[in-house]
C-alpha cells in the first residue's frame, strides 16, 4: 500500500471512532454534576496546597526552596492541579465498571478496538476539563502580579508535554481499569493509584524537594511524566532546547511503553474473559 493509501485508511479507521467521542460528550452532558465534582475537588486541593506552601515559605530561610521562589511555587501548584484535571479522564471507572457489570461484552462484539473506543470516548471529558481548568488558570496568570507565566518557547514545549501527559494518563487509567479482570474491588486499587500518582507525579511536593531516595523512585516511575515534566517546561526549568526535547522524549517513551502494555494485556485478558447471562 502506498503512503497516501495508508493515510486514507488510517483516516477512515479514525472516523469510525468519532461517534464514540460524540457519545462520550453526550454522557458528559448527562452527568454534568460529576464535572462539578472534579472542579470542586481540584479547587479544594489547590487551595489547601496554596495555603500550606504560603506558610512553608514564611518559614523558609532565603525565600527559596529547591531553587524555587514563592511565586514559582504558586505557579507550580496551579499548573500541576490543572494537569491533574486533564488526567481525570474517568477511563479507569468506565473500564472497571463495564467489566464488573459485564457490559463489556456489548463492546467486544463491535468491529472496533475497545482501547481505542475508550480513548475517543474520554476525549470530550479531557477537553471539557481543559477548558474548565485552563480558562481560570489563564485568567489567574494574567491578573495576579508576580505569578510566573511561561515564555513563548516554554508555552510551546508545555503544550506538547501536556498532550503526551494526557496520553500517559489514559494508558495508566486503562491499565488500572483492567484490574477489574482480577478483582471486583477495584475501588481500593483506583484509590491507591490516585494517592501514589499524586505523590510520585510531583503534584503534592515537587520532586526537587524530595530526599534523594524518594526522588530517584519518582524519576523511575511514569507518573512524573504526567505532572512534573510538563510543569518544569512551563516554568522554564530546563537548560536549553535540547534538554526540553529530552524531557519530551522521555514522555514519548512512556507513552509508547504504556500503550504497548495496554494493547498486550488487553489481548491477553479478553482471551480469558467470560461473561455470564444474557
Amino acid at each position: 500500500m502506498t503512503a497516501p493509501g495508508t493515510l486514507t485508511a488510517a483516516v477512515r479507521r479514525t472516523r469510525r471512532y468519532l461517534p464514540m467521542a460524540t457519545a462520550g460528550l453526550h454522557t458528559l452532558l448527562q452527568y454534568r454534576i460529576s464535572l462539578l465534582t472534579g472542579i470542586s475537588s481540584a479547587a479544594v486541593s489547590t487551595t489547601v496546597q496554596l495555603f500550606l506552601w504560603r506558610a512553608i515559605y514564611a518559614g523558609a530561610a532565603g525565600g527559596t526552596l529547591g531553587g524555587m521562589t514563592r511565586e514559582q511555587m504558586m505557579t507550580y501548584i496551579l499548573v500541576s492541579n490543572l494537569l491533574v484535571m486533564l488526567l481525570a479522564n474517568r477511563v479507569e471507572d468506565e473500564v472497571a465498571g463495564e467489566i464488573y457489570r459485564g457490559d463489556i461484552a456489548v463492546n467486544l462484539v463491535r468491529p472496533l478496538s475497545y482501547p481505542l473506543l475508550r480513548f475517543f470516548a474520554c476525549l470530550p471529558v479531557v477537553g471539557t476539563n481543559a477548558v474548565l481548568a485552563g480558562l481560570p488558570l489563564a485568567a489567574l496568570l494574567v491578573s495576579v502580579p508576580g505569578l510566573a507565566g511561561p515564555g513563548p518557547a516554554d508555552a510551546v514545549f508545555f503544550l506538547a508535554a501536556a498532550v503526551l501527559s494526557v496520553l500517559i494518563g489514559f494508558a495508566v487509567n486503562f491499565l488500572v481499569g483492567m484490574t477489574g479482570f482480577l478483582t471486583t474491588n477495584t475501588w481500593g486499587i483506583r484509590y491507591v493509584k490516585g494517592s501514589v500518582a499524586a505523590f510520585f507525579s510531583g503534584q503534592v511536593v515537587p520532586i526537587s524537594l524530595m530526599p534523594a531516595g524518594l526522588a530517584a523512585v519518582a524519576r523511575a516511575l511514569p507518573f512524573q511524566s504526567m505532572v512534573s515534566a510538563p510543569v518544569r517546561l512551563f516554568l522554564g526549568q530546563y537548560g536549553d532546547g535540547r534538554e526540553a526535547c529530552w524531557i519530551l522524549g522521555q514522555q514519548a517513551a512512556w507513552v509508547a511503553a504504556l500503550l504497548g502494555l495496554c494493547a498486550f494485556l488487553w489481548r491477553r485478558a479478553v482471551g480469558r474473559l467470560e461473561v455470564l447471562g444474557g
Binding site: T183, N185, G188, V192, S195, A198
Partner: peptide
C-alpha cells in the same frame, strides 16, 4: 478485599 480496602487507606495516609 480487606487488604485492598484497608491497605489503600494505609498507603494514602502514609504518603
Amino acid at each position: 478485599d480487606f487488604l485492598l480496602g484497608a491497605g489503600s487507606f494505609v498507603v494514602r495516609l502514609t504518603l
